[in-house]
Write a protein that binds this DNA or RNA. Sequence first.
DNA 1: AACACGTGGCG
DNA 2: TCGCCAAGTGT
Length: 364
Amino acid sequence: MSSNTQTASGLPQRYAAGSRDRQLVAALVRWYRRHRRDLPWRETSDPYAIWVSEIMLQQTRVTAALPYYVRFLAEFPDVDSLVRAKEAKLLEVWSGLGYYRRARQMQQAARVIAEQHDGAFPNTFEALLALPGVGPYTAAAIASIAFRRPHAVLDGNVIRVISRLVDEDGDVTRSEVKEALRLKAQSLGDTGAPRRFGEFNQAVMELGATLCVPRNPHCLVCPLASGCVAYKRGVQESRPVKPPKGRTLELEMVVAVVRRGSSLLMRQRPADEALMPGFWELPEEAAERLDENCLQDLGIQLVEELGRFRHGITFRSYRGRVYRARLAGSLPRGYDWIAAGHLDKIPLTTVTRKALKAKLRVQD
DNA sequence: AACACGTGGCG
DNA sequence: TCGCCAAGTGT
């Protein structure tokens, strides 16, 4: 499959491959070897460590993932330690990185590896794809980087680099267009050494992350410039083509700081909650419009505004206000008093971390 | 197929 | 400030 330039359905491939491509790929790999960033997951051949890095890098920048990667591997150095990890510890280590489902899925995958693969890391694209949290991108990345198998990755970087290279003008959110780009990436990688496909994949991604960036790409120093159709036509800034985004929904949010001595009123989100299960948070309410009575159902009366913050999730944008508040009735269901000194030992939602930070700013 | 999921950096 | 978007996956 890897060297097949036809689609499974027998459709003709969309972009031609030739000896020109081989030269471009060679130039790209030379550039990569010279300019690649020193990153810890590039210094290991341990499939487990490479898997951890690939999961963390999903929709996440290298600079954001870096400290988490180091901490995670120190805390959970192998499959076995991840299987045995306490959920609270896992979430604490992941807290702040985002997409928290990834952490739980990693533990599920670790269990699958321990139980169904006898602890040996799966080493084929198909077996990797079967792991929770591992999709086509991550399976191809691990297969090529850790196991030297010839599978092209398709991520945001590859989409950008290849769509510019061939001047793809179709909407890259469409699956047919993405598949055409993936096939082109595969055929490019197939012009090089099969067991170096991982290096090719990383070279394309590194190019996308550092030179072939969304705005103001550095085409003058790009190793692919001589073969880049979009650059030739001067339309590189207009590739890839994506549909316009819908408008974001503006919402208000109120967060209450209720103190008892040096403790704060907080609740742990239920384990079956869709959004950030198991995380701790201050009492909060969100709606289009909120007044000072908004937390009365919990018996909470707002006293004084302490600070403001903003928070956005997908298409929703929250304007948050933090209030000093007091508890009129008894302890609301699901709530507890948490010692302030304990806050750095439990996983907090980002809204709560932002609220506490906004409050500190005001009180300083 | 279209959405939801988090967060931070950049122009 | 604000929108874009980053080494995607699951539903």
